[in-house]
Design a protein around this nucleic acid. Sequence first.
RNA 1: GCGCCUGUAGCUCAACCGGAUAGAGCAACGGCCUUCUAAGCCGUAGGUUGCAGGUUCGAUUCCUGCCAGGCGUGCCA
Length: 580
Amino acid sequence: MKDKVAALLTEALDRLIEDGLLDASQKKPVHVENTKDPTHGDLATNVAMMHAKAAGMPPRVLAEHIIKALPASPDIVSTDIAGPGFINLTLAQDAAFAPVLQCLDQGEAYGHQQTTDEAWQVEYVSANPTGPLHVGHGRGAAYGATLVNLLKARGHRVEAEYYVNDAGRQMNILAVSVYLRYLEVLGEPIVFPRAGYQGEYIETLGQTLHTQAGTSLHHSYALISQHLPADDEAHQDAYIDALIQQVKEMLGDQWMRPFQLALQSILDDIHADLGDFGAHFDQWFSEYSLVESGAIESAIETLKQGGHLYTKDGALWFRSTDFGDDKDRVVRRDNGETTYFASDIAYIANKFARGFDRIIYIWGADHHGYIVRIKAAAQALGFDPERIIIRLVQFANLYRDGERLQMSTRSGSFVTLRSLREEVGRDACRYFYVMRKADQHLDFDLSLATSETKDNPVYYIQYAHARICRVFEGLADAPYDADRGRANITALTHQDELDLATAIGRYPETVMKAADSLEAHVLCYYLQELAADFHRWYNGTRLLVDDLDTRDARLTLAQAVRVVLHNGLTLLGVSAPQSM
RNA sequence: GCGCCUGUAGCUCAACCGGAUAGAGCAACGGCCUUCUAAGCCGUAGGUUGCAGGUUCGAUUCCUGCCAGGCGUGCCA
């Protein structure tokens, strides 16, 4: 409807241009918006104010000319000039209810746009497979999964991807941690390294390794630890690297056993965890595959050809400062190993090679320093950095009964995403994580998330949905007649009913806006408002009245509200219960 | 020091990319259940949009400076 009205206004502007009141070069796009105040009609536009200067007349005078030039339309009942020069438009009654019928015609597809033919990739979570996901990963997971849904609804082709960091030093630390626990099972008097991975799951993996391998991987801990440096605060990194080196040498080919076991089982766990959370991935992309395929070397070679690399202090550097970075970055260390950043370069090249129009990265906010260098790398490789979109997700603070929960990741005492889901449920989890703008801090109130009151937005919205479902039960005497409802819908005159119709009409543009701006929270706010509109109506107006024309008209409206609530909640990954 | 982000009601947050009288929820106070789920609704009160300038018909929004907070600033991942 907005588009229709905008088209009419554009036509009016064209007429004014013909009449010489306005210069064609001064024409600006027409913007039509919903009014906040019902006394301002249904739609409003600021075209008169936008063009006042160019036309050389006061906005209100220009507004009069525009209205005079406005082509007649059955949709528009009246126009009005208000305030500094707004043109307010009131829509015809049946036009106001048109979205309701459209919503019911389209059902689950309502709010979904036509296919755009744009290919998008959303990479999210991508947590190191060194342990179970914790609550810090939850927000990225919820946000990413919702974004995937929104972009699909927007009409884009979307591929969701998880980047598996299975090639770095952290994985070696993990493997050696598991191996030590394995030795422990065999009765070796080990001393666990400070920098090793703590946590029960490591011990469990050690036991599993024992079950699978028996004593075949047994080496004396005394021999292993023979020539290691001191494991104190200052040297813990050197210590664990030496330990890894030692164990690797002693195990030889067998080194991959603890490594693979740890990687595989943790990845399986993450996979299952995310699946239960409603976060699904089309692709689990292995960093190691970039090493194996030679992609890293060839990316470095490409940069070298382009003259973007130089050697200093025995290391190989990428001149990222040419592309706006603060300092240059190392791609190959003096010990010959490539850096994590080198993998990232190969990875971005791989993404571009796969032909995505838009490449979205969702990162924790602590990674914001990497934005510039990734884009720099893309540019140096000859790709358009504009196609890379990086969204940062701020951390969430958990509160229970007003008290902030402390979490430490390394000690192994962190709150896992799974335990959070068990406590508050998937629905509340998904909703609370995305209800705020992603790049802002979030206070996640566990007490509120589990409360069954209107204060809890999840229950509030779900309750509206359940209420509608219940109304439709028990109509056996006089079944709901959809045709009768549709035929009589324009006879509904309560302000609450008009408000609901307008709100339903705003749903598709809300989804579109959320998708285009990559801001999932606007959908949450929308659904809360729609639920509030419904509750207000429900409280003040009885739906099941004796007059069947009115009753079915109201049921039709309620049904449309239900469809929108259902569709919106589905995009958020939240269930829409029939009863509560 | 430099870079990025944030600052709106007592609290947690919105504000349709510059629009009309800045909106919700919580907390506070006062009302509404013999009628479709009170897991709900209605009302009252609450503001110098961090501060100071600038841009223009018009600024919470854009620009500059200052103040306060957060994050980042590895040959870690």
